[in-house]
Design a protein around this nucleic acid. Sequence first.
DNA 1: CGGTGCACTTCTCGAATCGAAGTGCTAGCT
DNA 2: AGCTAGCACTTCGATTCGAGAAGTGCACCG
Lengths: 121, 121
Amino acid sequence: MSEELLHTPQACDDALTRAFGFLGKRWNGLIIGVLTGGPATFSGLRRAVGGISDSVLSDRLTELAAAGLVHRAVEAGPPVAVTYELTEAGGALMPVLDQLAAWARTNLPAGQCAAEATAAG
Amino acid sequence: MSEELLHTPQACDDALTRAFGFLGKRWNGLIIGVLTGGPATFSGLRRAVGGISDSVLSDRLTELAAAGLVHRAVEAGPPVAVTYELTEAGGALMPVLDQLAAWARTNLPAGQCAAEATAAG
DNA sequence: CGGTGCACTTCTCGAATCGAAGTGCTAGCT
DNA sequence: AGCTAGCACTTCGATTCGAGAAGTGCACCG
C-alpha cells in the first residue's frame, strides 16, 4: 500500500469536483440551463425554473455572478430593471448542458418533450 | 407590447430538470465521475470522492442503483464483496463529465492538473 | 483471542432550503 | 387619487438534508 493500489484513483477529476461545486448545488444547473435560452429577469428566472424560492434564487444568482458565470446587468431609468445573462464562461457550458439534456432524454425514464414526440413520426 | 422577448421559455429543458434531479444532489456527480474510472467498492468510493460520509454514500448509491445508472454486484462467497459499476446509462454520462471537467479546467479559476501542465508547451 | 477492514444502518446536531410575507418603487385601471 | 399588480430583493420561521460518530455482523491476519 505504499506506491499505488489503484490505477490513478482520481487523476484529474479535481476539475469535476470544482464543476460540481456549482452544479451540485440544488438549482444552479437549472438556472444556467434556463439562461442558455437567452437573458432573463429575476422573476422570469423564477418562473422558468419552477419551484425555486426567491431567497434561494437570489443566493444562487449572487454565487453565479461572483463566480463569473452570469452577468448581472442593471438598467437604470425610473423602473430599475435587472437582467441576468451568461458570460463567456457560462456560455461555454451550453454544449455540455445540451449533451446532458440529450443523455437525460435517452437514459432517464418517464419523460419526453411533446415537441420531440412529434418529430418521431 | 413586444411579445417576441419570450422565445419558448423552457422548451425541452425538462430533460435538464430530470438530469439535475440526480446531479443536483451534493455528491452524485462525483460518485459517477469516480465510477467512470472503473468499478469500485463501497469504501473505495468513499476514499475516492473524499469527504463524503458513509450514510450519504449509502443513500446516493441506492438512488443511483434505483435509477439504473449504477449496478450493484454482490459477489457471494464467504467474504461477501459488493462492487459498484456504471450501467450503460451511467456510462453514457462519461463523455458529458469529460466535457464538464474540460470546461471547469478552462473556466473555473485556481486549479490545474499536473498532467495538464505538461501539455502547456 | 484481539485487531482490522468491509458494507452498511442508526442517531443526533447544525446547515441548507423552503415558503410566505415584507419593503420600496413604478405602471395600469377606475 | 386610490387600489391593485409586478419587479427585485430581504427577512423570518419551519422543514429537510447532510455531516460525523458509533454500532452490527462477518471474515481475514497475526
